[in-house]
């Protein structure tokens, strides 16, 4: 949707005449994002209209929940990205020699259930 690859024509839709879906058109993605930005702005502006009752003093800060949500998620993602350096391994990391062949079977394990 907002992936860089999505702003180009998707590979399968490119030349084979496949129907264009909603988010195949970059314009629709832009529309969605604009609507989203508008919602965010309105939500912050709503604080001028709605009087929030506050239990804890931190809550009283203007836009506390908006700022907290944004910062929390950025910190979460950046920290998790750093965690990858420490804990990310190949998919066959736990497979011993005897069971290595089985790891591929596991990848498409859903097929094991199809038609059963």
């Amino acid at each position: 949707m907002i992936d860089k690859a999505d702003t180009q024509q998707p590979p399968s839709a490119a030349g084979n005449g496949e129907k264009l879906y909603l988010f195949d058109k970059p314009k629709n993605v832009q529309r969605l994002l604009r609507g989203f930005y508008l919602c965010c702005t309105l939500l912050v502006l709503a604080e001028f209209v709605i009087h929030r009752h506050v239990v804890h003093s931190w809550e009283g800060l203007f836009g506390f929940y908006a700022i907290y949500g944004f910062v929390a998620c950025v910190v979460l993602v950046l920290a998790a990205t750093q965690m990858r350096k420490l804990i990310m391994r190949n998919e066959d990391y736990y497979d011993t020699d005897s069971s290595a062949a089985d790891s591929t079977a596991n990848d498409d394990g859903g097929n094991g259930n199809v038609g059963r």
Binding site: K4, V44, E59, G63, Y65, A72, V74, V77, L78, T81
Partner: peptide, 25 residues
């Protein structure tokens, strides 16, 4: 309703921002 919606929309805003900046893993 307002505070929860703010929290969620701005969490989503963080996702959009990280994606557009290419920072999302």
């Amino acid at each position: 309703v307002l505070t929860q919606t703010q929290l969620l929309f701005f969490s989503a805003a963080a996702f959009v921002w990280l994606q557009l900046r290419g920072l999302y893993p």
